[in-house]
Design a protein around this nucleic acid. Structure first.
Lengths: 221, 221
DNA sequence: ATTACTAGTAGACGAGTAA
DNA sequence: TTTACTCGTCTACTAGTAA
């Protein structure tokens, strides 16, 4: 396999136009570009030439470097791998954790018609009055943070009975084949390792889970 | 800047799904994947964690690795650079060389109406009877080879006066702002450092060049 | 100015091994 | 099984310098 430093150097050359025509560089400029010494840059270029990834013609004040077809192919393969990371795969995120008990607040909020109606619009189902609280495993916390950057829908707050109910946000998700939603209260400082899931059915019963059972939630298209 | 080996490791993790959820790996498996030892793989992962590019949770029989937002951003930046290399830039190739004299064959062939008509169809102009021969600088030869892979149009051979005239191929190009074409005879073994350019005008006169003057040709959309 | 050699050295590597 | 420590080796780096 092509060593990582060689790939880095090859990419830098391509980025400066080394695929499209002879690129005038010096080992000094390459060195500065990659944060290595002039001598190391010299060795790097010689190595790339030996591997048939570039061709060089030395002049008195530098050298003309061009990527060969082989060199360009190596980069294209790399490019396709990055494309696989970001484009393909459908961007479905998985959260893993275990069922925990909330303090029953979720149940109360989900019974309020003002919230209920909004969730129906956002998620396409009328939520069962109750939430399933899940404590994420530590490894899922960074994933949860990335999910934060996705398209959440705002749930508007309201006033009723002389009380103020705050904003929240919601995103669709799935547990197994059940369409659910993750709900996060608006302003309150919410623990980052807990998520609250709502669904059209009583999840605990439907899934046959109880506290400390492990569970997975899928988010994304 | 992120060391090349760290980037390589981060990419490998992302490729296995480390962006989308906790990825179960062992330092051994990472080592095998990257062609390094278990110990080095361990160091690599610890390093990535220290830099805030991944989070890890160790278990008895391996570890769960997840890319952080920061780590994913690093890769996305890299991806965009590759995209710049391959998508952007219009894929205009530059060939550099110096004017040389041919043996007058080009002039003869370009005067034959059967060829003339085909070039008019392909290039959109009636070629001046004569070709400009260019000897490429060594650095341009790999570029020429890449151009070989582009869309050439076949020029059909024919028989006339009891002689057979062979196939050729042709691709549009530009010298300065003049629309030209590169012509390569079909079967004959043609020197790889020489190209023949045809144009609607007498190029030597129009450009004011003579033998050994240097010249650039642009190929591509 | 360049490239790239030699020399000396710092740091990365893998083997062995503990936890 | 794992992870990751120590340790000895050797690679790969930079400085100096020739061409």
């Amino acid at each position: 396999m092509l060593p990582a430093e060689d790939l880095q150097c090859l990419k830098a050359l391509a980025l400066r136009g080394g695929c499209k025509g002879p690129l005038f560089v010096s080992t000094q400029s390459i060195g500065t570009m990659l944060g290595i010494s002039q001598q190391t840059a010299s060795r790097r270029l010689k190595g790339l030439e030996t591997q048939g990834l570039i061709t060089r013609t030395l002049t008195a004040d530098g050298q003309h470097v061009t990527l060969t077809k082989h060199g360009e192919d190596k980069l294209r393969r790399e490019y396709l791998e990055y494309a696989r990371i970001f484009s393909e795969g459908g961007k479905t995120y998985s959260l893993h954790g275990s069922v925990v008990s909330g303090i029953g607040e979720g149940k109360y909020y989900m019974s309020l018609p003002e919230y209920k109606q909004q969730f129906k619009t956002i998620l396409g189902f009328e939520p069962y009055p109750g939430t399933l609280n899940i404590r994420l495993v530590p490894a899922s916390i960074p994933v949860r943070k990335k999910i934060d950057a996705l398209d959440w829908t705002r749930v508007k707050g309201f006033s009723a009975d002389g009380r103020t109910f705050g904003d929240a946000r919601c995103i669709p998700c799935r547990i197994g084949s059940i369409s659910c939603g993750i709900v996060v209260p608006g302003r309150t400082h919410y623990p980052e390792d807990i998520i609250e899931v709502i669904a059209p059915v009583a999840l605990r019963r439907k899934l046959g889970v109880e506290d400390s059972d492990s569970i997975s939630v899928e988010v994304g298209p």
